[in-house]
Amino acid sequence: MTVARHVLVTGAAGGVGAACAAAFGANGDHVTGVDARAEQLEALMARLASEHGVRTAAEVLDLADPECGAVVARAAERLGPVDVLVNAAGIYPATPLADMTAAAWDRVQQVNVRAPVLLTVAFAAQGRGGAVVNISSGAATRARPGAAHYCTSKAALEMATKACAVELASSGIRVNAVAPGFITVDSPVNPVTDAYRDAVSRNPLGRPGEAHEVAAAALWLASDAASFTTGAVLRVDGGATAGTTDLPLHHDHATPLQVGGELAS
């Protein structure tokens, strides 16, 4: 019989975070959702409890708070020690470099990098093993206009994933990341234009991803099936990192193979 775990998911009120919370709930795990959007968060937690018979709790929190790590202890008081931490919260405002301010830069780093690290520190302070899954992005390896703060934050999150994996391995804690490509979500917090959606969702599989596909990767990384996996970044991006199908052949006809001065047939 599988023992239900306690999973804490940030950004759980919508998008990938909500999909992760739903996937773990459907798996029979108890879920604490963390988000700044109280109404949506509480509604989702109530639905998961009703549909799956699991225990849930809602923690309303702005993750830019430097004391955000305290939410781990609060969650443990309500539903027991946290077994899995999923850092899914993230913000990606559009800010051209000419308009960048210290406040705009700092808030993205606080929510996207500092909060996952502080929550991981608090998770480890429980003194037990477990798994941490960070949600990164293809932006960690590819810059784009208006997203210098966001791309930098995701590159930093991937390095923080590796650093935490190394330091926490001896504590029995695995730390990994999922890096999605463009995912179809209806987000009032992080809206995108149709033109941006069409451009960024090009990949070899020819379609945007779905939030549940990212959640499935997070569920696997947090499972015993991934027991020998830590410090990894799993790219769930339709093949976008592998390459592009948008380019034509670099020559207008097939080039024969030349071997030792002779043309091979």
Rank of each mutant, 00 (worst) to 15 (best):
Y196A: 14
R197V: 13
R78D: 05
A98K: 11
D246I: 09
D83M: 04
A160Q: 03
V166A: 07
R197L: 07
L63I: 01
R55H: 14
V84F: 06
R197C: 06
A148V: 12
V192S: 02
V200M: 11
A22H: 13
L63E: 09
T184N: 13
L157D: 04
E67I: 10
S170Y: 06
T230Y: 00
A226N: 09
T32Y: 12
A131K: 00
Q126D: 02
G90M: 09
A104E: 01
T230L: 01
R107D: 00
A165F: 02
G260R: 12
A155T: 06
W105L: 01
G138Q: 11
G243K: 12
R5F: 04
M45L: 14
H149V: 08
S50W: 11
A225K: 04
R197F: 08
A165L: 09
A148Y: 00
A75C: 07
L168I: 08
V259A: 04
D194T: 10
G25H: 07
N203L: 01
S50C: 10
F24I: 07
A89P: 15
L249P: 15
R47N: 02
R202W: 08
V3F: 04
A199H: 14
A140H: 03
V113Y: 04
D35C: 05
T255Y: 11
W105N: 03
T193H: 13
G138P: 03
V175W: 06
I173S: 06
L168C: 06
A195D: 01
R114E: 06
A76W: 09
V113N: 02
T56H: 13
A195W: 06
A143Q: 11
V200L: 10
A64Y: 12
E39D: 15
P188L: 13
A225F: 09
V31N: 01
A38V: 09
P81W: 15
Q258V: 15
A217G: 03
R5P: 10
G15M: 11
A26D: 04
V259W: 13
L219E: 02
G260P: 09
A242M: 03
I183W: 05
A125H: 12
Y196P: 02
A23N: 07
V111G: 04
A217H: 14
V9W: 14
C20Q: 02
S50F: 11
A131P: 08
L247G: 08
H30F: 12
V71L: 15
H251K: 14
T10M: 10
P81A: 15
D246L: 08
T95L: 10
E39T: 06
A155C: 04
Q126H: 02
M1E: 08
V178N: 03
D224Y: 04
P93F: 04
A115E: 08
S137K: 12
P81C: 11
G231A: 04
S136I: 03
V133D: 09
N112W: 11
R5G: 09
A103S: 13
V200N: 11
R5Y: 11
Q126K: 00
W105Q: 00
A264R: 14
S187C: 07
G14K: 15
R74C: 00
A43V: 13
P191G: 02
D252N: 13
G243S: 07
